[in-house]
């Protein structure tokens, strides 16, 4: 019998935490009862949330201690404001003190919260620096992306500063949103209503094939849990050699795919048979195109 699937995409942040962590293991830091709400939204006539749109705390994944943050995409699109960002930064810095098997960031966000724009932007820079501090301390940081808002803006840079990224096909990871590109550069450059184009450019399958994500999983909280558990305590040390290798990898990418205008062209050059069929492939058939996540992680 297959275990029941619980859509990661549809779930709230707290539902995702409940499904990710061992039952009863979650201890929330600065819980909603502490009412650490945004000091800026009331002046704009915008309702606040008791957790400012992110739950942070400690728990266990398959028995192993983790620190975890879950952005609530339903509150202001998961956007990062001053308090929201400081909660994630504080969580990461706690990892320097308690050294868990991993810090897990469940990202579901459009990026900066424009209602407190400057504070949100600086907050994302602080999160990114804290991610790198944690990695330099040898603790794994794992990002999960599969929510309604995808992972955009400054948080897309945070995600790629982590050791690993786990995505679902429904997840999207990019710095600029489709609407922004269309608004500024025109519909010929990017038709934001063309959902298939969005997924071919920013979606989980493209990111996995490109080597930007480390695992592609079905839209199921349990599948995210399994993939995340596999990446615990497997840090990717940041060394000069590692940075030079990454530089070479990215340079080779730009050369290899020069002139490509669509994901399908990229996949074709990657040698994927029948690249046009990639969007239709089931997860298992898709992952069969690749080395397994475990191999790729080595």
């Amino acid at each position: 019998m297959r275990p029941a699937r619980h859509s990661y995409y549809e779930a709230t942040a707290r539902r995702r935490l409940a499904g990710l962590l061992d039952e009863g293991s979650f201890r929330e830091y600065c819980p909603p009862t502490m009412r650490l709400t945004s000091p800026h939204l009331p002046a704009l006539g915008v309702p606040v949330a008791f957790d400012d749109g992110v739950a942070v705390g400690e728990g266990r994944v398959q028995g192993r201690p983790v620190l975890v943050a879950a952005q609530e995409g339903g509150f202001m699109g998961g956007a990062v404001g001053e308090v929201h960002g400081a909660k994630i930064t504080g969580l990461l810095e706690r990892a320097l003190d308690v050294r868990p098997d991993g810090v897990v960031l469940l990202l579901d966000t459009g990026g900066v919260r424009l209602h407190e724009a400057n504070a949100g932007l600086i907050a994302m820079g602080e999160i990114q620096r804290a991610v790198l501090a944690v990695r330099h301390a040898g603790v794994s940081v794992i990002a999960a992306i599969g929510g309604r808002n995808g992972c955009y803006g400054g948080m897309s840079m945070v995600a790629r500063s982590c050791d690993r990224i786990v995505m679902s096909e429904e997840g999207r990871l990019s710095i600029s949103g489709p609407e922004v590109i269309e608004t500024v550069e025109g519909i010929e450059e990017f038709d934001s209503q063309d959902r298939a184009l969005v997924w071919r450019t920013m979606g989980g399958k493209h990111r996995r094939l490109l080597g930007e994500a480390d695992a592609l999983v079905p839209d199921d909280i349990g599948a995210f849990r399994t993939a995340i558990a596999g990446f615990l305590d497997r840090p990717r040390p940041i060394t000069l050699d590692a940075l030079m290798a990454e530089q070479a990898r990215l340079a080779a990418r730009l050369e290899r795919f020069a002139g490509c205008r669509d994901g399908v062209e990229v996949w074709e050059r990657l040698g994927v048979a029948e690249p046009k069929r990639v969007p239709d492939l089931g997860i298992d058939a898709f992952n069969a195109l690749l080395p397994s996540p475990a191999e790729a992680a080595e």
Partner: peptide, 18 residues
């Protein structure tokens, strides 16, 4: 001791009972 349900969004709300 406390519960929180719902999400603050357009047409939605959160309720906390302590």
């Amino acid at each position: 001791d406390h519960v929180l349900v719902g999400v603050v969004g357009s047409g939605n709300l959160e309720v906390m009972i302590e």
